[in-house]
Design a protein around this nucleic acid. Structure first.
Length: 488
RNA sequence: GGCCCCUUCGUCUAGUCAGGCCUAGGACACCAGGUUUUCAUCCUGGCGACAGGGGUUCAAAUCCCCUAGGGGUCACCA
């Protein structure tokens, strides 16, 4: 294995950017970066109705956002361009012809109807037999003549007798008997459209891919491809089949049991490093003790050989926890910057407000940071700071709690009076307030609970005095007076 | 159903290749305490697993065999 390390991710641009794709990309990327290889992005857009330009863009943006940079790709031309499979079809067809000439492939003139009836026969016989096309042994000259006459055909790979054994970097030795494998279609009837299993190998060959790391669902495809490498007379790359990411139903992660799109997590405000960290933990562990590790830790220790074999059930709770860990480690400035888009999206304040009151905004974020798990939690946690003073939204539970305090309204008014009179001025408003409560023969919650309601409308929240400072004297007083009125 | 892969706490996993350091470690979740003006954060403690059965060995989570369970795959989709 002295050849240079070149790994790749080959997503098809259909739909959203799936977390499974992100993890496969991450492992390929990490391997390339750890061992000084190249990471290639190739778009698998073999002509299909589902391919969209928007999806291709989403893939490039998503991977870029995650910080998984590639060395060669559709937007980053390298020595093996182009990096979009649809642009390489001429080459695929050329190789297909070459394989017909060498006898590794043959033209199958079977019609769709013939195929259907063959399949029906299998069904009836209750026993599956691999497809060996009727035209498999057609005389070469005859085959060429019919093709020249314009008769439509598909090109199939000729699976020899025997079995294929290969060494999987994660699973060890895997053997699959050939009688399980169809003579598979390399080029569809019509002669213009090559299939996935074919182009993948053609392109991996042409791009000198040394290691193929992909999902376990491709494990049984591997013999087909290995046989093709041999037919093309090209060294077989190393393979590693990653365990699948499973949903809570223990089946391949899908929308059935939760969010699977990277964009879902971006929109909810998961820190990107938390996503990378969590994805890495799906099948790989740094040392078994440390769950939280940096990208550098990953790059210093990652090896595909340490990836586990068993599928990993995706645990949304642990993912959220991890997001919170990363979020809370951010400094005030960074956190505020990450939270700002969510505050705007929720209509809390405009871009201009944000600019004009940036230092204040940072302090507000700082006041609630312990209550955030995701950036997107900010509007719910700190929304009250942005509500009109006379219209603070009271949560039912909070209001009920405040009403249980006898004389809550009077208490609030009296407290407002004291504040206005400057009776509590000084360094320590919290201490002065507690002293004030004691003088009146009341208990702390008698004031604090209604006060919290008046100020924030919530039952929980940041420190009351910090909140008042952030709200400002005027706003605070209006809110307290309003609270007294509403509780009366 | 055939074939292939997999199997340690509910979940993610360490330990398995090189059998003894494992009365199986960490984390999430959960439960119970503590800190706190509330909520949250934070701290402490608890609960909790080697799928089952046979071997091999002085010794097995670790090696071998069988069984069971789960998953993947069987397209002119990718």
């Amino acid at each position: 294995m002295s050849q240079p390390i070149r790994v790749r991710i080959a997503p098809s641009p259909t739909g959203t950017v799936h977390l499974g794709l992100c993890r496969t990309a991450l492992f390929n990327w990490a391997y390339a970066r750890r061992f000084g290889g190249k990471f290639i992005l190739r778009i698998e857009d073999t002509d299909h109705d589902r391919n969209t330009a928007a999806s291709e863009r989403a893939i490039l943006e998503g991977l870029t956002w995650l910080g998984l940079d590639w060395d060669e790709g559709p937007d980053r031309p390298g020595p093996y361009a182009p990096y979009r499979q649809s642009e390489r079809v001429a080459r695929h067809l050329e190789l297909a012809q070459q394989l017909i000439a060498s006898g590794h492939a043959y033209r199958d003139f079977s019609t769709a109807e013939e195929l259907d009836s063959w399949r029906a026969e299998q069904e009836a016989r209750k026993q599956r037999v691999a497809y060996r096309g009727g035209d498999r042994n057609l005389d070469a000259a005859e085959s060429a003549r019919r093709a020249a006459a314009g008769e439509p055909f598909a090109i199939r790979f000729r699976i020899p007798d025997g079995e294929t054994t290969f060494d999987d970097l994660i699973r060890g030795t895997v053997t699959i008997p050939h009688h399980e494998i169809d003579d598979w279609v390399m080029v569809r009837r019509g002669g213009e459209a090559p299939t996935y299993n074919f182009v993948v190998v053609c392109d991996d060959v042409d791009m000198c891919i040394s290691h193929v790391f992909r999902g376990e669902e491709h494990l049984v495809n591997t013999p087909k491809q290995i046989l093709l490498y041999a037919a093309l007379d090209y060294p077989v790359p190393a393979f590693a089949h990653l365990p699948l990411m499973l949903g809570t139903d223990r089946k391949k992660l899908s929308k059935r049991t939760g969010d699977t799109a990277l964009s879902d997590y971006q929109e909810k405000g998961y820190p990107r490093e938390a996503i990378v960290n969590f994805l890495a933990l799906q099948g790989w562990a740094l040392d078994g003790e440390t769950d939280l590790f940096t990208r550098d830790d990953l790059l210093a220790h990652f090896d595909i050989r340490n990836v586990s074999k068993a599928g990993a059930v995706f645990d949304p709770d642990k993912f959220r926890w991890m997001a919170g860990e990363y979020l809370r480690r951010e400094d005030a400035e960074t956190l505020a910057r990450h939270v700002a888009p969510h505050a705007q999206a929720a209509g809390l304040l405009s871009a201009e407000d944000l600019r004009a009151r940036w230092p204040w905004f940072q302090e507000v974020v700082g006041a609630v940071r312990e209550r955030l798990t995701l950036y997107g939690d900010f509007p719910a946690a700190a929304g009250f700071f942005f509500q009109p003073d006379a219209e603070v939204v009271y949560e039912e539970k909070a209001e009920a709690g405040a009403r249980k305090r006898a004389g809550a309204a009077d208490m609030l008014n009296a407290y407002a009076d004291a504040l206005e009179a400057g009776a509590l001025d000084g360094e320590d408003l919290a201490g002065a307030t507690k002293h004030w409560i004691g003088e009146r023969g009341a208990k702390i919650p008698d004031l604090f609970q209604p006060l919290r309601l008046a100020l924030t409308g919530m039952a929980g929240g940041p420190d009351l005095f910090e909140s008042m400072a952030l709200l400002g004297r005027e706003s605070s007083l209006v809110r307290i007076r309003t609270g007294a009125r509403r509780l009366a």
